[in-house]
Amino acid sequence: MTTLERTLAKALTEIVIRLDLSDDDAIAPGAAMQVLAPVIALLHELPEQDRRALAELINQCAQEETDPERHLTAWETPETLGLLA
């Protein structure tokens, strides 16, 4: 994968982590889903091979996380984004 692809996967993972772990008073869960819904829709348009490749990049990002809570959320990100469907 290219540096650009890896950086974009890492940025997407970071967004999901921050939305998921934010205090509900800061970002309501419904608002978080409103942010993610169009992203999920775009990702569903990708060919299955590309979705799997993105999921693998995100899993690599998850492996780099040292904080247990961030690690778990990152590990769940491919499922959250519907990449494994």
Rank of each mutant, 00 (worst) to 15 (best):
M1H: 04
M1E: 03
T2W: 04
T3Q: 08
L4C: 03
E5W: 01
E5C: 00
E5M: 00
T7F: 09
T7Y: 10
T7H: 06
T7R: 07
T7I: 01
L8C: 05
A9P: 07
A9M: 02
A9C: 01
A11T: 03
L12W: 06
L12M: 11
L12A: 00
L12V: 01
T13Q: 07
E14D: 13
E14Y: 11
E14Q: 15
I15Q: 07
I15D: 00
V16W: 13
I17F: 10
R18N: 01
L19I: 09
L21I: 11
L21W: 10
L21T: 12
S22E: 05
S22H: 01
D23A: 03
D23S: 05
D24Y: 15
D25G: 10
D25M: 12
D25P: 03
A26Q: 06
P29V: 04
P29T: 05
G30I: 02
G30A: 11
A31P: 03
A31K: 06
A31F: 10
A32Y: 03
A32S: 09
M33I: 12
M33Q: 10
Q34E: 04
Q34T: 06
L36S: 14
A37Y: 06
A37M: 08
V39G: 14
I40M: 13
A41K: 13
A41Q: 14
A41M: 14
L42V: 13
L43H: 08
H44T: 07
H44S: 08
E45P: 08
L46M: 12
L46I: 08
L46C: 06
L46A: 07
P47H: 12
P47L: 13
P47Q: 09
E48R: 13
D50S: 09
D50Q: 12
D50N: 11
R51M: 13
R51P: 12
A53G: 03
A53D: 08
A53T: 05
L54D: 11
L54V: 11
L54P: 09
A55I: 15
E56Q: 10
E56Y: 06
E56S: 06
L57W: 03
L57A: 00
I58Q: 06
I58T: 05
N59A: 10
C61L: 04
A62V: 08
A62I: 10
E64F: 04
E64K: 14
E65A: 01
E65G: 00
D67S: 09
D67L: 12
R70D: 01
R70I: 00
H71W: 14
H71D: 01
L72V: 05
A74Q: 04
A74F: 00
W75V: 00
W75P: 01
E76P: 06
T77K: 06
P78Y: 12
P78H: 06
P78Q: 10
E79F: 05
T80K: 11
T80H: 03
T80C: 00
T80I: 04
L81E: 07
L81D: 02
G82V: 02
G82Y: 07
L83I: 00
L84H: 00
A85K: 04
A85W: 03
A85E: 10
